[in-house]
Design a protein around this nucleic acid. Structure first.
Lengths: 108, 108
DNA sequence: TTAAATCATCGTAAAAATACGATGAAAGGA
DNA sequence: TCCTTTCATCGTATTTTTACGATGATTTAA
């Protein structure tokens, strides 16, 4: 193994989170930890079902980069993406967002 | 300006978070978004006031790296560090943690 | 005084994240 | 059919993050 790779310590067993649940939580936090992606989430609150192009017009970045950010949010579970014709409608994933909030509440 | 730097879009004004508050929230999320740092926070729940050396023994990384992670957590507001002799006692910063939780609650 | 313990910081290397333009696929309109 | 719209993905460049060893400062113990 090379010397620099993100290290994953064995889970501390003293709290109500570890393993897959902890990974899921950290992954959601990571997706949240970027100004553009945070802005996308905010935009989706008021523009549910909006498409890629809407975000490209709103944000100061290229279309390819918006797609990339949407992918990160999708894979972390913050949003859903439903293909409809040639567009894709993005929405907040309320279920996962609630899970994130209640998990944060329960951890600390 | 070079082409690749993290972009900060103008704040979307439709939600109860923007500007400094939003920056603070994203910064805390960023600090949270690393498995080692998450483990440090968990460790601090059960070992309040612990010192750098305790964490070095617990975690699979070098002392310098632990220091670096503690600095990130400090600057994001997740923890406090009180110098006592040659050691530094680290604790969770309950006030800021509560702020993070309630802000998450209020945003979405 | 000397040695050990504790820790932050520096310099650096490797990996991951962020951004872009180009491209091609798929769907819909002219 | 042909053109436009929409979008994901590829390759690539740059920046940021993550990690290490070395070093020196500071405090305590012997």
């Amino acid at each position: 193994m090379s010397k620099s790779k993100i290290c994953f310590p064995d889970a501390c067993c003293t709290l109500g989170i570890s393993g897959k649940k902890q990974e899921r939580f950290v992954k959601m936090a990571r997706a949240l930890a970027n100004p553009i992606r945070f802005e996308i989430l905010k935009f989706l609150v008021t523009h549910p079902g909006c498409i890629n192009v809407n975000l490209v017009k709103y944000l100061p970045i290229a279309q390819a980069t918006v797609s990339q950010h949407l992918k990160v949010l999708l894979e972390a579970g913050w949003i859903t993406g439903d293909i409809s014709g040639r567009a894709t409608n993005y929405c907040l994933n309320a279920k996962n967002i609630n899970w994130f909030k209640s998990t944060a509440e329960e951890i600390f």
